[in-house]
Design a protein around this nucleic acid. Structure first.
Length: 412
RNA sequence: CGGGCUGUGGUGUACCGGCAACACGCAUCGUUCGGGACGAUGAGACAGAGGGUUCAAUUCCCUCCAGCCCGACCA
């Protein structure tokens, strides 16, 4: 991708109406655009990051047997009526001039919908267990959208639902999902705490959240500095300085961002929507369910909150919009063009700053802001050695390498 | 939903009861070219919307709308 052709441009100033780091940096660098409070367009650069995150999620969820599908945003009243959730004041009900009485809501979750679908296909214990998921837009009428893309009114979510013959099988899968979640977050550069939490409108029992410690986070987590055990303040009896109930380590208190959660739903939804199977003896049993969510936009925001410096974003390699940022300086344009073509041919995901009228300083500052982890600079200076300068985003100075050798290294 | 603050070219700001200024960005020309370089010229806002006070409103008052922050709420 040539930077001169990119749809967006960077901005030198922070937007006046954004206080959170994630929104300031993502907007300045051209990853997102705010249309309304809590409603952000994901621009080409941001969409690349979201796609990287989505690919990692798909890999890990597919690996635990998740089958991807897509449910629709419009959810008929009868689904939420079945569980008494139609009147929860979080959805956007859809009305029209001809139909002032709403009969649809823009889905803020899909337990009811997926449960009814599953009831059509699950009949026997032989059909279980199963797990399906989607990456889809959710709508929530947040009383107060805040913190940039960390709490929006419309956002992309991965929601996974699992179906089991009994509680034991659910818990087994729950553990698998937990491990998959740890992998997903770790691969995306996020250190998460597996946090005991309440169930909200989803289930009466306890649930688990994956919390990233960060000052902007709106949750408060008590966590063990030694073993990583954690509880959400909402339900916790712990306080800072206590001893960890598991290992005796010291409990710390910190604000945190909930990037994911997993819920043992039990039979609440299967009973409400008639999802049952025949066991080995032919007796009808309710299916035991779990649900598992990850907010993709919120993850992107959390990554930026964690990985930045005073110059801009520092993307973890796995989720960076491009693998390398190639910069051509004055006097090296034609050589840089050739090198760019070679990188493309070698299959390297490269962002190429070919802008003729930008100064070196502008290019470097933009590169720092956009935050691609590996930078290549070609200038008259580097060409004296038939070379290119390689610099990691977090390094102060780079080193010169031969162009061909650089392609070899990058294509590995 | 309650409270506070804010709303001025594309962006960030200033001024002010007398028909709007500066920086950045943008356009053209020239000089530059390894950390947002310089000079010249130029385009671009009827000041969130509506109403009121006044000879006169971007400025004062009211209403509404929008945004941010705090709180309440909250997969």
């Amino acid at each position: 991708m040539r930077q001169s052709k990119l749809f967006t441009k960077t901005s030198k100033e922070n937007p006046k109406d954004e206080q959170s780091k994630n929104a300031q940096l993502l907007e300045r660098a051209g990853f997102i655009y705010k249309n309304s409070a809590g409603i952000y367009t994901i621009l080409p650069l941001g969409w690349r990051v979201i796609q990287k995150i989505a690919a990692i999620i798909r890999e890990e969820i597919n690996a635990i047997g998740g089958q991807e599908m897509l449910m629709q945003a419009m959810v008929d009243k009868h689904y939420l009526k079945a569980t008494g959730r139609w009147d929860i004041d979080i959805g956007f009900k859809i009305i029209t001039a001809k139909n002032p009485e709403p009969s649809f809501v823009l889905g803020w979750t899909h337990e009811e919908v997926v449960t009814e679908i599953a009831a059509r296909f699950i009949n026997s214990y032989r059909d279980l267990p199963l797990a399906v998921y989607q990456i889809q837009t959710k709508f929530r009428n947040e009383a107060r959208a805040k913190s940039g893309i960390l709490r929006g009114r419309e956002f992309l979510m991965k929601d996974l639902y699992s179906f089991h013959a009994d509680e034991r099988d659910l818990l087994e899968y729950y553990e698998k999902a937990k491990q998959a979640y740890f992998k997903i977050f770790e691969r995306c550069g996020l250190r998460t705490y597996y946090t005991l939490a309440g169930g909200g409108d989803f289930t009466a029992g306890n649930t688990h959240e994956f919390q990233v410690l960060a000052p902007v986070g709106e949750d408060v987590t008590y966590y063990c500095e030694k073993c990583g055990y954690a509880e959400n303040k909402e339900i916790s009896k712990l306080k800072a300085g206590d001893k960890c109930p598991g290992c005796g380590g010291k409990i710390g208190e910190a604000n945190s961002i909930e990037v994911g959660n997993i819920f043992p739903l039990g039979t609440k939804y299967s009973e409400a929507l008639g999802l049952a199977y025949a066991d080995e003896k032919g007796n009808r049993q309710p299916v035991v369910m779990g649900s598992y969510g990850i907010g993709l936009g919120r993850m992107m925001g959390a990554i930026v909150e964690i990985h930045n410096d005073d110059k801009g974003i520092i993307w973890p390699e796995a989720v960076a919009p491009f693998k390398v940022h190639l910069i051509a300086l004055e006097g090296a344009e034609s050589e840089a063009d050739k090198f760019y073509d070679k990188l493309i041919k070698a299959g390297i995901d490269v962002f190429y700053d070919d802008r003729a009228y930008a100064t070196a300083g502008e290019k470097f500052n933009d590169a720092d802001l956009i935050g691609i982890p590996c930078r290549l600079v070609i200038s008259k200076k580097t060409l004296e050695n038939d070379g290119v300068e390689i610099k990691k985003r977090f390094d102060k100075i780079g080193e010169i390498a031969k162009m061909d050798a650089t392609i070899d290294i990058l294509s590995k």
